[in-house]
Design a binder for these strands. Structure first.
Length: 638
RNA sequence: GCUAGUGUGGCGCAGCUGGUAGCGCAAUUGAUUCGUAAUCAAUAGGCCGAGGGUUCAAGUCCCUUCACUAGCUCCA
């Protein structure tokens, strides 16, 4: 981005011309500009002197302009090849662009190639994009054959400016900004065809969406495509299966992964660590049932607000009792609080549980270990007084931050303050006043901590606002890893009370929180973070002992046993292959350490150590090596 | 749930417009004991996701279903 101070503007002139008059050199690579706080195309007019900012492809604004124009070229190509296709919307995203079409035959992969060729022609013609505005009546007349555009116009506020961009014979209702010429698009690729609901509402028609990406040079495009392929190699769903951390079975069903010995071990390691850490921080452990009668969920509100998400066993019409697997731990853990009368002296009461949950996700939602139907979460509910709320919230956040830092994920997360949607009366319980209060309290706490967050309207839980800790997977898709919620509604519903110092009975505030999230999802992100090469303390197999030939298997066995006895996770490679082959296999397994033993080592009582981190460490006395390992393991070094 | 795609031995693939399944690696056995992958020999392993249908004949065509993938919606 380059700032330019315009000094010679006397009459309205295009940004391009104005900058050219000032300093033509800075126009190289410029794609759009910010004038008076608004991002505009370079062909748009400026009327007065002052500072403007130019953006090129390295700026998000530049990228978006570039991609957005590519989407218009895509739309034009589609309209030429498939005139009956109706235009919906075609914005730039953080990772490219898409355009939605209503075209019932749908597009095939062959169509994509055809469209790409057509786009080439449009780009070659290098048509100019002209912006103009119309009155509402004129605009509606202009788009009368495009029902989605008509709907867009009709839904815009009365006073909004209706701008159009015209490139040759193709015109689109669009706020812009755009590049000045289609020929500026140098390298592009259409990536996929998918369905997408009109206006993101599943009640609306599903349109055909074409995704694509473009770059100023062929090299950048190629590099981007290579990068996508590289990302695929880290994909936990591929790598996790290759490394035998987990698998799935058709006969078991969707969203129900099988943790293989290695995956199960990593989860166990995480779980022990989390439970121990929670204990250190004053959390008490509960163990509550995985299912309950429908009565419980009726009190909590799940029956009315979450039933679609639950696995219900039995039929209310025909069965005496109907059960449901638990989708959340809250109402179960509350029973522990309700076990006897509580006073303010019992508070804060911090209840933690390693809790297996069941959610009946829609069939298309499942994804590897990220979205599953059964998962185990480091759950917790904290009952406290209003005075304790801020400190306790802060403590919960401290714990999650400690977890994230230790795992090496801290730099990768972002925070979302998830609020309710006052328009959505179906989804939420409670009154606007209660929501204002709970959200107000949370805002105060977050601002006091100084956390940088974005706001997610309609992302709250049905009973209260959330602080969601978000993380992106290897494909750039964001998911919630951890959540901390403030709930002032369920305590009342469940009759949870404590006797305050003044003798009155009060409902406690409840913090719903997780310390490390659910183990499956966290494991998925760790696989991707480390590309399967887990730090020593988390590695399912920490060392592999490789005898250079079968003659040294006795010594290899002895070394293995000693390492096992010292508490390490060790495997002995007892195959008859050459050592080079064994090493190569061990490398593929991404082990922290290889221990090679042969004649020399057997005689000296040493081991030849090869570390993933430090390479060849040479011969070490076994007991000294073990000491070193213990230190590394205990410090949870990455 | 919706839109599209995929589904052949553990893994990676071949199998064109239908004619009764192959290859490489891995595995097993025997020989070899070789210090940074692929010596020798032999063996075993697949009702081609599942269930129907068309056909004299289906991995190849049609229908249904299950699972996996991308995206939408939804969500930890």
């Amino acid at each position: 981005m380059i700032k330019v101070n315009l000094q010679n503007v006397s009459a309205p002139v295009s940004v391009f011309e104005a900058v050219k008059a000032e300093n033509p050199d800075v126009l190289k690579g410029a794609l759009c500009a910010e004038v008076n706080g608004k991002v505009v195309g370079l062909s748009e007019e400026v009327c007065e002197n002052g500072e403007i900012t130019l953006f090129d492809f390295s700026d998000p604004e530049g990228k978006k302009t570039y991609w957005h124009t590519t989407s218009h070229v895509l739309a034009e190509a589609v309209k030429i090849l498939y005139p009956e296709a109706k235009l919906a919307i075609g914005p730039a995203t953080d990772t490219g662009f898409y355009y939605d079409f209503d075209y019932d035959p749908g597009f095939t992969n062959e169509d994509l190639s055809k469209i790409e060729s057509q786009m080439k022609k449009i780009i070659k013609k290098n048509t100019r994009l002209n912006r103009y505005t119309l009155s509402r009546a004129e605009a509606l007349e202009k788009v009368k054959d495009e029902p989605y555009k008509v709907e867009l116009i009709n839904d815009l506020p009365e006073d909004s400016e209706l701008s159009f961009y015209e490139q040759g014979d193709f015109t689109d209702l669009c706020a812009g900004p755009h590049l000045t010429f289609t020929g500026s698009i140098k390298a592009y690729k259409l990536l996929s065809i998918t369905g997408a609901y009109w206006r993101g509402d599943e009640k609306n028609k599903m349109l055909r969406r074409i995704y694509g990406i473009s770059f100023p040079t062929r090299e950048e495009l190629d590099a981007h495509i290579t990068q996508l392929e590289e990302a695929k190699k880290r994909d936990h769903n591929k790598l996790g299966r290759e490394l035998e951390l987990f698998t799935t079975a058709d006969v078991i069903g969707q969203g129900l992964p099988i943790m293989l010995p290695k995956g199960a071990r990593v989860i166990q390691l995480l779980q022990r660590w989390v439970e121990d850490e929670e204990q250190k921080r004053g959390w008490l452990l509960t163990k509550t049932p995985l299912m309950a009668k429908s009565d419980l969920y009726k009190i909590s509100g799940h029956w009315d607000h979450y039933q679609d998400g639950m696995f219900v066993m039995g039929d209310e019409e025909t069965d005496d009792e109907v059960f449901a697997l638990r989708p959340m731990t809250c109402p179960f853990q509350y029973q522990a609080f309700l076990n006897r009368g509580r006073s303010y002296r019992d508070l804060p009461m911090r209840l933690a549980e390693t809790s297996t949950l069941f959610r009946n996700e829609a069939s298309g939602e499942m994804h590897g270990l990220i979205r599953v139907r059964q998962f185990t979460i480091s759950e917790g509910h904290l009952m406290c007084t209003p005075e304790q709320l801020a400190d306790e919230f802060r403590n919960c956040l401290d714990l999650t931050n400690y977890m994230l830092k230790t795992l090496g994920l801290y730099e990768d997360v972002s925070y979302r303050f998830s609020q309710w949607d006052p328009e959505d009366t179906e989804k939420y319980i409670g009154t606007p006043e209660q929501w204002d209060e709970a959200q107000g309290i949370m805002k105060e706490i977050l601002d006091d901590i100084g956390l940088e967050y974005k706001i997610g309207v309609g992302e709250a839980a049905f009973y209260g606002p959330k602080l969601d800790i978000q993380i992106k997977n290897v494909h750039g898709k964001e998911d919630t890893l951890i959540t901390i919620q403030i709930d002032q509604m369920l305590a009342e519903k469940f009759g949870m009370e404590y006797v305050a110092a003044d003798g009155t009975k009060k409902n406690p505030y409840i913090i719903h929180r997780t310390s490390i999230g659910c183990y499956e999802r966290t494991l998925a992100l760790l696989i991707e973070k480390y590309a399967g090469a887990f730090p020593l303390w988390l590695a399912p197999v920490q060392l592999k002992v490789l005898p250079i030939s079968e003659r040294f298997e006795d010594y290899a066995k002895k070394v293995t046993d000693e390492l096992l006895a010292a508490g390490f996770r060790v495997e002995l490679d007892n195959r008859s292959e050459k050592i080079g082959y064994k090493i190569r296999e061990a490398q593929l397994e991404k082990l922290p350490y290889m221990v090679i033993v042969g004649e020399k080592e057997a005689e000296e009582g040493t081991v030849s150590v090869r570390s993933r981190k430090d390479g060849d460490k040479g011969s070490l006395k076994l007991d000294e090596f073990i000491k070193e390992l213990k230190v590394e393991n205990d410090t949870k070094a990455r």
